[in-house]
């Protein structure tokens, strides 16, 4: 686990210089807050979801893009890391990105509530929770579909092949989760159960993908 965390930090170092996720969140958050203060109102939160998701989804694959362009797989191969540590680190990075997205949404909601406490209605809360649940789920599913492909082939071999499943997994998960949770009051016990089921399913798929990714990377020639 220690090695996987070190590897995740290395992924962050490789990715952050190309496309800093913090920077991305900051820009979109500021724009969302400005929009919030205009007649657009609290819809700005839901508009910013789109931008956040798109940017974060790209961040998910940035370590692989960097690896393909600058031979980072060779760098990883020189470190005292087993191949499974490297794969664990990539998945941890994906998880971190997804969690950051969720946390950022909470931050944004918090700022909006501070600015205008009156927006807090039960329906609004339910909607916010749905999005807050959906966005990390979409990101984790994108990583779960994408990472094994990237680990097997590398980004340089097939960028298009990589992007289509990425978008597909995101849109598919978004659709399934949002229709699945349609009409369910997420603040109720029934809603908590539904949310937990979604979370468990997503995490299970992510873990299965991790195991697959390890197997694929183990055999790859670098």
């Amino acid at each position: 686990m220690h090695n996987a965390i070190k590897m995740m930090v290395l992924d962050c170092r490789a990715a952050s210089n190309r496309n800093s996720i913090v920077y991305l969140f900051l820009v979109i958050d500021v724009l969302a807050v400005i929009l919030f203060l205009t007649p657009v109102g609290d819809d700005s939160l839901f508009i910013s979801f789109g931008a956040l998701l798109g940017g974060t989804a790209m961040t998910l694959i940035v370590p692989f893009m960097a690896a393909a362009q600058r031979g980072l797989d060779a760098l990883y191969a020189l470190l005292p890391l087993r191949r499974r540590d490297i794969v664990n680190g990539h998945y941890l990075f994906g998880g971190l990105v997804a969690v950051s997205m969720g946390l950022n949404v909470m931050l944004l909601v918090g700022i909006m509530l501070l600015l205008q406490p009156s927006i807090l209605t039960p329906e609004w809360l339910s909607r916010v929770i749905r999005f807050a649940l959906m966005s990390p789920a979409m990101l984790l599913m994108m990583a779960a579909v994408e990472y094994p492909l990237l680990l097997r082939f590398g980004f340089d071999r097939a960028p298009q092949l990589v992007l289509l499943p990425l978008i597909g997994a995101g849109v598919g998960t978004g659709y399934l989760v949002s229709t699945g949770l349609q009409g369910i009051d997420l603040v109720s016990p029934q809603g908590v159960l539904a949310g937990t089921i979604v979370a468990v399913v997503v995490i299970a798929v992510f873990v299965v993908s991790l195991l697959l990714g390890r197997r694929l990377y183990e055999r790859r020639s670098l």
Partner: peptide, 11 residues
């Protein structure tokens, strides 16, 4: 030391 690049561009 390997032949070819092994670090990210911006490092």
């Amino acid at each position: 030391q390997l032949d070819g690049s092994i670090y990210p561009d911006t490092w």
